[in-house]
Amino acid sequence: MQRKVRDNKAWFLVLPVFILVAFSAIVPIMTVVNYSVQDIFDQNTAYFVGAEWYREMLRNPALLDSLGRQFFFSFSVLAIEVPLGILIALVMPTKGRMAAVSLILVAIPLLIPWNVVGTIWQIFSRADIGLFGYAVNAVGIDYNYTSDPTAAWLTVLLMDVWHWTPLIALLCYSGLRAIPEAFYQAARIDRASKWAIFRHIQLPRLKSVLVIGVLLRFMDSFMIYTEPFVLTGGGPGNSTTFLSQALTQMAIGQFDIGPAAAFSLIYYLIVLLVCYAFFTAINQLDKAK
């Protein structure tokens, strides 16, 4: 039997990681926590206010509005991008030159900087000079995203779908490629229908990439900022003012650092909570015999 060595030298091995994590995550977050419990007037004048800012933020109608808008937006994004991404992955060619060509075409939106995406759609959707906006009006639909809240909201949604569905498609495409040929062969021998193949072979094997895809898309869409900011500036009215934009307006525009910090943390907790709930639900489903 070997005797156990009992000292704490091993901690030195994790120390570099610990320091790195501290500086990259813990210190910045703690700064925000610090702001969120104080009322700061200037560099030398600050009062401890406890949970006051949190209470106030949770009662702020403008923020609650944008929170609701945010949830609705994120769920719309997921409801469209996930099925659409799967569908695109299923029809993408698997062999030959067309496979490479289609991969590049699908990946293009992902390679465009976010503010450029906003600009592209701002011009593309304009009713007077934009190809898309003009075309929609030409078929007789009254469409103007700068004045009509619904149109603005739909345009932001459409832009996000255009920008991010490729991510889901590419994830699913790689997931599909990882399914061994024998599964399809066995399915043919078993006379499985196309739907059965999707339901019982492809979908179960896409699950892990879809979990990642859904989480990424949820977090990302929940924190969307740049594209709607460039496209609509949050308007008309507040119709496309999402959470991060409301937050920025408060922190930078009005310089309410304390409330903004409190709200940031609430925001952060919501994202964390939703992801955790989703992840746990999936795992529970998995374990069920």
């Binding site: 061994p180 024998a182 019982h200 979908l203 179960p204």
Partner: peptide, 8 residues
Amino acid sequence: QFPVVYDS
């Protein structure tokens, strides 16, 4: 050669 089952 390698087992094929419908996991779900």
